[in-house]
Structure formats: structure tokens, C-alpha cells
């Protein structure tokens, strides 16, 4: 059976200054989740994936600074949808590696206040769980947010070109859950991205991939370079983490072709970890088995 990937376009979601039209964004989410889960009632949609008593982690990506991170509006809108479905606000956390990066991306940290929690692993009292997790080529400590607190996870990643991995999206976003991602960038991050995802702490908790493709860095990533960043105004949804990233990769290749850039394969940095992930049965990474539904919100 083919894996479904929903690509929702939201023309005008970014205005001239790059600010977000919140209403438009919300309709992109609603439409995307409806199309993904085939449910008409948006409130009930997310309860197909989560239980009301779940503790849900929204793992965002804030490594590249304000211009190329998961924006607060994007993650908070998703959090709102989750709480609207019946998950308590206090059981939703928006998080990444460090508070410094979260703040630089425009987040107001919320460590003890009411509402959604927003903080990084480096907050005192959080840290990495000291139990070393070993799986094939992976040997890492996991953020206690991922290992101890959350029961379900959404990877809300930025879609970017990556100098070593080729593409960084939903699966590689989980590099931000471990203490030593710097050790997993050899060989185009292959097999590390797939093997990290395969660890119980990730695979059993991951429920949904959403690729923030409002602005796509299609070349010279993962840093922000305005010259190669396209206002793409889309969100990509899938329950299949490999298929979501596979479609993200195709988006990047299309943008590169449009700008006359060589393919990632020609630059010797094709995201081969997706094939590895497919071989492991983590999802689909081929055109014949990925069904793309593209809609305008």
C-alpha cells in the first residue's frame, strides 16, 4: 500500500515582509490534517493519532537562527490544534536542543508558566538522560524530554538542503534529541539518520511528520542564505516519516533544477539515508509507493 503525503500550499501565508498570515496558516493545517486522516471534524482528527492523556512533544528545528527555523506561529498553531482536540495544554511541549537557539528563533521560553511548555534540553533540571542508548551505529544519550517525559512526538522540521546529508527534514530533525549529533554526519549521514529513527525512543513515539516548507533552503543549507531560499508557502504532512522526507527531497530537487543547480546526486550528496530507511521498513522512499496529494488551502 502506498504511503500518503499531503502537500498543502497556502499562497499568501507569508506577506511581503515575511510575516505569517495566521488565519491562512491555520487553514493549511486544518486542510492538511483532514486530507491526511480522511476525517471531516478537525477536532476528532488528531485524536486518531493521540490519546487525550498523551504528553506530546513538538520537536522543532531552531539551529539556523530566526530566518530559517520553525517559526513560533507555526509550532504554536499546531499546539493549538492539539489542545483543541482535547490534549491538555500543560501536556504539550515545544522543544529543541538549547534555549539559546529557541530564543534566537523568536520563542519566549515557558518553563513554569501555564500553557504550552517551551524550552530546550539544556534547561537546568532537564538535560540528557544519563543512560547510554546503543543501537547499531548509534550510541547516544537522549534528551530527557524525548526519553522520559513525552509519550508521543511530532517532528515539525524545516525543509532544507544540507551540505552533508543532502536533505534535512523530519527524520534528521531527531538529531536534535541526542547529545552527539556531530558524530553522525559522515557518509552523508547514512545510515545514522535511519538508525537513530529506528531506536525505540524515537520510533515508538513518533506519530506525525510535518515539514515546514514555508521557506525552503534549496542550496547551501543548512545555514540560511537568502539567495538560495525560496518562499514556497507549503506544509507537508505524512504519517510515513520516510515518505514525507522523500517528498521534501523532490521539492528541493525541483527548486534546484528551476535555478539551474546540479542535482544532489551530481554533488555527491544524495540523501541515501532515505533508501536505507526504506530497506529497514521505516517507510517508503520511491515514487511508485508514495501517493502525493497536493492541494491549495
Amino acid at each position: 500500500m502506498a504511503s500518503k503525503v499531503v502537500l498543502i500550499r497556502g499562497k499568501g501565508v507569508l506577506n511581503g515582509d515575511g510575516d505569517i498570515d495566521q488565519k491562512r496558516l491555520l487553514s493549511m493545517y486544518t486542510r492538511g490534517i483532514q486530507a491526511l486522516l480522511n476525517q471531516q471534524n478537525p477536532k476528532e482528527n488528531l485524536l486518531l493519532l493521540f490519546r487525550r492523556n498523551d504528553k506530546v512533544g513538538i520537536k522543532i528545528n531552531t539551529i539556523a537562527g530566526k530566518m530559517l527555523s520553525t517559526r513560533p506561529e507555526v509550532s504554536l498553531s499546531l499546539a493549538k490544534l492539539l489542545s483543541g482536540s482535547g490534549i491538555q495544554e500543560k501536556n504539550i511541549i515545544i522543544w529543541d536542543r538549547t534555549n539559546r537557539e529557541l530564543r534566537a528563533a523568536g520563542y519566549h521560553l515557558n518553563i513554569k508558566g501555564s500553557g504550552y511548555a517551551i524550552f530546550g534540553t539544556d534547561t537546568r533540571g532537564v538535560d540528557y538522560n544519563p543512560r547510554l542508548i546503543s543501537h547499531l551505529n548509534i550510541g547516544s544519550l537522549f534528551s530527557s524530554i524525548q526519553s522520559d517525559w513525552i509519550t508521543s512526538s511530532i517532528s515539525l522540521a524545516i525543509l532544507k538542503d544540507h551540505g552533508m546529508a543532502g536533505v534535512t527534514a523530519g527524520m534528521k530533525n531527531y538529531f536534535g534529541t541526542i547529545h552527539n549529533p556531530n558524530k553522525y554526519h559522515d557518509f552523508n549521514c547514512d545510515p545514522f539518520v535511519a538508525e537513530l529513527f529506528e531506536t525505540k525512543l524515537i520510533m515508538r513515539k513518533h506519530k506525525l511528520s510535518i515539514l515546514d516548507s514555508l521557506v525552503v533552503q534549496y542550496h547551501r543549507g543548512p545555514s540560511y542564505h537568502a539567495r538560495w531560499a525560496e518562499k514556497y508557502e507549503a506544509l507537508i504532512f505524512s504519517l510515513d516519516p520516510v515518505a514525507a522526507d522523500f517528498v521534501g527531497w523532490q521539492v528541493i530537487e525541483k527548486l534546484r533544477a528551476k535555478k539551474g543547480l546540479p542535482t544532489l546526486k551530481e554533488e555527491d550528496r544524495e540523501p541515501t539515508y532515505l533508501k536505507t530507511a526504506e530497506k529497514k521498513g521505516l517507510g517508503k522512499a520511491n515514487r511508485n509507493e508514495v501517493k502525493i496529494i497536493e492541494e491549495e488551502a
Binding site: L109, K112, D122, R124, S144
Partner: peptide, 15 residues
């Protein structure tokens, strides 16, 4: 442990 117990363990935020 849940968020509440997690938050109980946090004290003055510090990097």
C-alpha cells in the same frame, strides 16, 4: 514522569 513532575524539578532557569 510527566510535565508537572518535570517542571517541579526545574529551578531558576540557567544555561
Amino acid at each position: 514522569s510527566g510535565l508537572e513532575s518535570l517542571l517541579m524539578n526545574l529551578y531558576a532557569f540557567e544555561e
